[in-house]
Amino acid sequence: MTGAEAPLLAATPAGLARRWQLLAWLLLLALLAVVGAKLVQVSRGSATSGAAPLFTLASFDGTQHTLQAYRGKIVVVNFWASWCAPCAAEAADLEQTWQAYRERGVVFLGVDYVDTEPEARAFIELWQQTYPNGPDRGTVIAQAFRIRGVPETYIIDQRGQLQAPIIGPTNRAQLSAVLDRLLAQP
């Protein structure tokens, strides 16, 4: 048999080479280690009750915001949509409140519910909102929070605990009252 006619795959490989065996074990153990580490993390996180559902929001400017990354800070999550009239009514107050509290480490996230992107961007432009806003793709975040409609606002404290939700449009006085109380906590 000449070299050109040699089969592409040998018909009778001996036992698998040691380095491939090693690689298979390493891959399996790495996978198990990652999943196991995550399991430990998850079981620790669920110890307290009333924890806010964890989510990731990809804002319109392309940044990813995860709730876990803001642990230790107060997070205000506002659900809105460009087609929602009461959302327009509260938009200016939300922006003003954020401007007033951002120095003190309060995070605002706007979650855009069932909307189209051009209209949503126009809404943000119109109300000059500068805090991160992003679409809720597949209404995943809305379902996690079990929202009833828009607007709704959820405030999450420094330890990731949910405060009483604000159903319907909110305003600066209402938000300030909650934020001041949480900031005063040790």
Binding site: L32, V35, G36, K38, L39, V42, S43, S46, P53, L54, F55, G138, V140, Q143, A144
Partner: peptide, 25 residues
């Protein structure tokens, strides 16, 4: 079922995670 993945489909968290992990491993 262990809460490792968060998803619309996820089940409520429960104590089965570690046992399940041991079985998988």
């Amino acid at each position: 079922r262990s809460g490792v993945l968060s998803s619309v489909h996820a089940f409520a968290q429960s104590a089965i995670g570690p046992w399940f992990f041991a079985f998988v491993a």
